[in-house]
């Protein structure tokens, strides 16, 4: 097992929500972010699902990486193995939710397949691998990144609702103004850096 960096999991959790939001500073998960954020309710559902999946996948991929992939010496295949793990987690989650909570399935189910190709999930897993986090750090980072994504999409959905009825130049309508809004949000989030002391 590699030497893990000395970053406290709690700090990692909050830092990945605020100071280095996976969407606003790493651009991960922008596609579904723009597509779904039109609607506040869907944003909530997708955000919740993403948080769960990233958290779970970070933990499971950590185990797969250090217990299977590295002992077998097949690190070069890690991308495709991660993708398959993510797809499997999403599939299992879908079945479990369907089985135990049909009402949650109704509100969440349609978003689950979208998550497999959400780059935020694979991104968080790859960051976990490159930064050599240990198990607890990986889970904290995973849930933190998911929660950060969730926070960002909820904020954006609320802002977009306000923008809807405002006069926006024709060429900027839709995606254009949304990107500019995300840019301002990213600027605001930079203000958080330095707030969290990593000890």
């Amino acid at each position: 097992m590699p030497e893990a960096p000395l970053v406290s999991p709690l700090v990692l959790f909050f830092a990945s929500i605020l100071t280095s939001n996976i969407l606003l500073s790493n651009f991960l998960g922008t596609c579904s972010f723009i597509a779904i954020s039109k609607d506040w309710k869907s944003s909530f559902g997708l955000g919740l699902a993403v948080t769960f999946v990233i958290g779970l996948c970070a933990g499971i991929c950590w185990a797969v990486l250090y217990l299977v992939v590295i002992p077998l010496g097949i690190e070069y295949l890690s991308f495709v193995i991660f993708i398959i793990v993510i797809a499997a987690v999403v599939q299992v989650l879908e079945m479990v939710i369907d089985r135990f909570s049909p009402s949650l399935y109704m509100s969440l189910g349609i978003f689950l397949p979208l998550i497999t190709v959400n780059c935020a999930v694979l991104g968080a897993v790859l960051f976990m691998q490159i930064r050599k986090y240990d198990f607890i750090q990986s889970i904290a980072f995973g849930f933190g990144s998911g929660a950060g994504w969730w926070l960002a999409i909820m904020l954006l959905a609320a802002i977009r609702k306000r923008i809807e009825n405002n006069p926006v130049p024709a060429g900027l309508k839709g995606t254009g103004i949304t990107l500019i809004t995300i840019g301002f949000m990213a600027m605001a989030f930079i203000g958080f850096s330095g707030m969290i002391a990593v000890q």
Binding site: E3, P5, L6, V7, A15, S20, I130, R131, K132, Y133, V198
Partner: peptide, 9 residues
């Protein structure tokens, strides 16, 4: 020497 950074070592 390896030390802690903001995101990793």
């Amino acid at each position: 020497r390896t030390g802690s950074g903001l995101w990793g070592s």
